[in-house]
């Protein structure tokens, strides 16, 4: 009796669960399962081609006390995220504002600006290698037009990271599209009311547009932050972490340990530290959002 009641409860949802099961199984087998295994591996010495040997927390001790590359890779990754993410947000937002105007061929313009973000990472990396060539690259040619002798970019320990940050703007189209969607969701009535109250365009932008799309800014900030802290392809293809470790990102260090140096156990420990770092950074952003993100209908202070 009890069983048939349970089945009656399940039955309306069975088809849904069945349809979702490929994804659920895929997630369990190929994402969650390996993640849980990697907790175990992080506590072992595991050269991948041999069975793991239990070492307890030694990988973490080595990481914090002996690994010469660990702190530098954390520093490089953090620095990149701190500069690239806000730059990405501001550029994406401004482009969205521009492309939200009523101008001719707007769909074409949006497509043109969005297009670079769908080009594959490796192709983009190779393209930018040419742009940053100090002898005949586009970057230094443009600087030369205004009388600036451009740096060696990817060959310079000072300029390699800024070069990768500039390059990250290539994929700003993704966040731009989300910003455009957000901007189009701002009620026109708010602008009209502000205008009737005597607000000029700048005030309308700061006091209507920005608060109304602050949830979109939060979304782009979190997505951008997570992506920035996992930067890998550019450094792997363009600089191999150099020069002088100036682009030695955390993910590159992790990859080297896992697949170049036969240290999968240590790489798993690095992966969990990165996971914790991203989690803390994301939680910090989410907690801070109560101060600067405005949700329509929300009444602050209640």
């Amino acid at each position: 009796m009890h069983r048939s009641k349970l089945w009656r409860q399940i039955r309306p949802h069975a088809a849904g669960w069945l349809c979702a099961s490929p994804w659920i199984l895929g997630f369990l087998i190929f994402t969650l399962g390996p993640m849980l295994w990697s907790i175990y591996y992080s506590l072992t010495e595991y050269p991948l081609i041999r069975p793991p040997v239990w070492v307890g927390l030694d990988n973490f001790r080595v990481m914090f006390q002996e690994d010469k590359f660990f702190y530098n890779s954390l520093r490089v990754t953090t620095l990149y995220a701190i500069v690239a993410v806000p730059l990405h947000l501001v550029t994406g937002f401004l482009m969205a504002v521009m492309l939200n105007q009523k101008i001719r061929y707007i769909a074409l313009w949006r497509t043109i600006y969005f297009l670079p973000s769908v080009v594959s990472g490796v192709a983009v990396a190779l393209l930018w290698q040419w742009i940053f060539n100090s002898d005949f690259g586009l970057a230094n040619w443009l600087l030369g037009l205004v009388g600036i002798d451009g740096p060696s970019w990817l060959l310079s320990p000072t300029w390699a990271l800024p070069a990768l940050i500039i390059m990250s703007l290539w994929s700003v189209g993704g966040s731009m599209v989300i910003f455009i969607a957000g901007l189009q969701g701002v009620p026109q009535a708010l602008y009209e009311a502000a205008e009737m109250d005597g607000s000029n365009a700048v005030r309308r932008f700061w006091h209507v547009t920005v608060p109304m799309i602050s949830p979109v800014i939060l979304f782009n900030l979190i997505i951008g932050l997570i992506a920035a802290l996992q930067t890998f392809t550019q450094a792997f293809i363009m600089t191999a972490g150099g020069p002088k470790q100036s682009t030695h990102f955390f993910m590159l260090h992790l990859y080297n340990n896992a697949f170049q140096w036969l240290k999968m156990g240590y790489a798993s420990a690095l992966a969990w530290i990165l996971f914790a770092y991203i989690l803390v950074a994301t939680l910090f952003v989410i907690r801070s959002s109560s101060v600067w993100v405005f949700y329509e209908g929300e009444i602050k202070g209640r």
Binding site: L155, P157, G242, P243, K244, Q245, N256, Q260, W261, L262
Partner: peptide, 20 residues
């Protein structure tokens, strides 16, 4: 491993050849 040994080797090789 070779990869581990070559990490600092390549790094300092570049520093020397590029005159830093």
């Amino acid at each position: 491993t070779w990869g581990e040994m070559m990490q600092p080797t390549t790094e300092w090789q570049t520093e020397i050849f590029e005159g830093r």
